[in-house]
Computed example of a mutant assay.
Amino acid sequence: MPAQTTPFDLSLIQFDAIAPTEPPADQIYDQVRSAILCMYIPPGTLLSETELGLRFGASRTPVRDAFTRLRATGLIVTRPSRGNFVTRLSEPRLREAQFLREAIEMAVIRRLCQIGLEAEYLQKIKLNLTRQATAIADDNDIAFQGYDDQFHALLAEATGYSRTALLLEQEKTALDRLRVLSLSDRGHKARLLSEHRDILNAVRAGDMAMAEAATRMHLRSVLDVIAGLQTTHGDYFE
Rank of each mutant, 00 (worst) to 15 (best):
G206W: 03
L54V: 13
I104M: 01
A107H: 01
L70C: 04
H196I: 04
G83E: 10
Q123L: 08
I18T: 13
I28P: 07
P23L: 01
I115D: 01
F56V: 10
D235M: 05
I115K: 05
L94K: 04
D176N: 00
M106N: 14
T5S: 15
A35T: 02
K124L: 11
H218R: 15
S194L: 11
T6F: 02
R111V: 05
A25C: 01
L89H: 09
S162N: 10
S34N: 12
D16C: 10
S59M: 08
L100R: 09
V77M: 00
A153H: 12
A153R: 15
Q4R: 15
H188P: 14
L46S: 11
F67E: 00
R82A: 15
K189D: 09
R101V: 03
L192C: 12
R220P: 07
M1F: 03
R60F: 02
E195G: 13
G146S: 09
L154I: 08
M217G: 03
I226F: 07
P20K: 10
P7K: 04
A103F: 05
M39W: 09
Q145E: 15
L166E: 10
A103K: 12
E49A: 15
H188G: 14
R93Q: 12
I41G: 08
E169N: 07
A153C: 01
I115M: 03
L219P: 05
A107K: 00
R186C: 10
I125M: 04
P92E: 12
L155V: 02
